[in-house]
Design a protein around this nucleic acid. Structure first.
Lengths: 239, 239
DNA sequence: CGGCGTATTGACCACCCTCAACTGACGTGG
DNA sequence: CCACGTCAGTTGAGGGTGGTCAATACGCCG
């Protein structure tokens, strides 16, 4: 469960919260952090129970979900590499975290993290700004959930994923024939994120494929053929 | 538009962000803040444009909205007395703020606010914690928007309002016959908050009234007759 | 009284949900 | 090697919730 690697060669060192720490601090950071791996589908942290550690996502995708008593579930956020996971300044998390794909985390005790923030203004500042961005993202998604049609919802999600993947794989190789994109979510998870049912997601993806906007490969991959049309479908203006 | 009052007698002094400032700072704070009043329906701040000030809500209710190109609108947050309005560390706000009722704000320049946070760790900390709470609240609302039925949505909102009002008016007088609650939102605004249409909100309120859970008075007031049943209606478990 | 804006009510129907069957990929075991 | 089970995804038929459009009621104010 727990392995060791050096902060100096960390893949997300440049963009995670700890990018604000000076090099001299890295060896100390290395000592107080530890890594964890999860398989797709595994539970990471939950509501209710005491939660005494936080983490940075090293690789993979984490989904944050909220569940009602009768089982209805809503994904309320996705975390990618370099994103922060956990709820400082509270004893528990108000939602559950689960591995959507295989996930590597770089963990540390919540108390250590709070101490780090106390002594490193830059890091505290970055954390604050990222939290503000999370508020913005959550509210953007509220607009999607409350006002968009199924077609717009699906297009919006695919667009988001395509952008996420494009920025992640900064290869620059063969960009023209279509943007290839391996979705980190199953149809069921897409539905849970969009406030839809699986069948509706499947049908809308089918429609986008028939319209030539995207192609689907076996499994979870899609190829964006016409990103402009995808973007227009994501917020159709009455036409 | 701009009037002066002393921080020392401020109504939200005990709960706003500035409650973390020592008394010695109040006269200085008094000098750099100014007040503004808005009538119900007035625009406060918007997307796109440069936004160089932030504020604390002194009284009234502010709604934060997002609008799509074709006019579809979603309320993404409500601010009550002592809540903070504005988006520090960014040049503009990603959503519009509008007065839902008559509103009084205590404003200061964004730069001054950022400076204050820089020099007052307690205030910075409180701001961070409140921002984290905003994330939680937004995600809670995502669950409502994505998964709840119209009946549950309306009940959830009425419950929220009843609790807000109960805590605000800590009178303790005549609690038994029914919790009186003056809604700060029109039916249209309730619909915009819940991801519904006005007609649906109106019908669901009618059903709750017929069921004896609430009573309605002329205008926007409601009386909660059975808060337990209202809470159960807000998250029905398959019954 | 008439005009205006908000709330309510009614009739209709479309979008999405529900339930069900089917397909294809994958793994296991005979 | 194929039969079989499983699981994710797809497709189809039908129904219900909530949207749409229109008329009416109500409160407010000149």
């Amino acid at each position: 469960m727990s392995l060791q690697r050096s902060c100096a060669v960390c893949a997300v060192r440049a963009s995670a919260l700890c990018c604000t720490l000076p090099k001299e601090q890295l060896s100390r950071l290395n000592r107080i952090t530890y890594q964890r791996r999860y398989d797709a589908g595994q539970f990471i942290m939950g509501t209710g129970q005491q939660q005494d550690w936080v983490a940075t996502v090293l690789s993979g995708v984490v989904k944050l979900t909220k569940t009602m008593a009768d089982g209805r579930q809503q994904i309320v956020g996705l975390l990618f590499a370099a994103d922060f996971l956990g709820r400082p300044f509270a004893s528990g998390s108000p939602y559950e975290a689960e591995a959507a794909t295989a996930v590597e985390l770089c963990c540390l005790e919540r108390q250590s993290f709070e101490d780090l923030m106390l002594h490193h203004p830059d890091m505290r500042q970055l954390f604050l700004e990222r939290t503000l961005n999370e508020v913005d993202a959550a509210r953007e998604w509220m607009l999607l959930l409350g006002r968009k049609t199924a077609e717009e919802k699906v297009a919006s999600l695919l667009l988001l994923m395509a952008q996420r993947v494009r920025s992640a794989t900064a290869d620059g190789s063969a960009p023209s024939p279509g943007l290839h994109c391996e979705l980190p979510l199953s149809r069921t998870e897409m539905a849970e994120y969009l406030g839809l049912r699986v069948e509706t997601v499947s049908r809308q993806i089918g429609r986008l494929r028939d319209a030539g906007v995207i192609d689907t490969e076996n499994g979870r991959a899609i190829i964006v053929r016409d990103i402009g049309r995808l973007a227009r479908t994501a917020a159709k203006e009455e036409g």
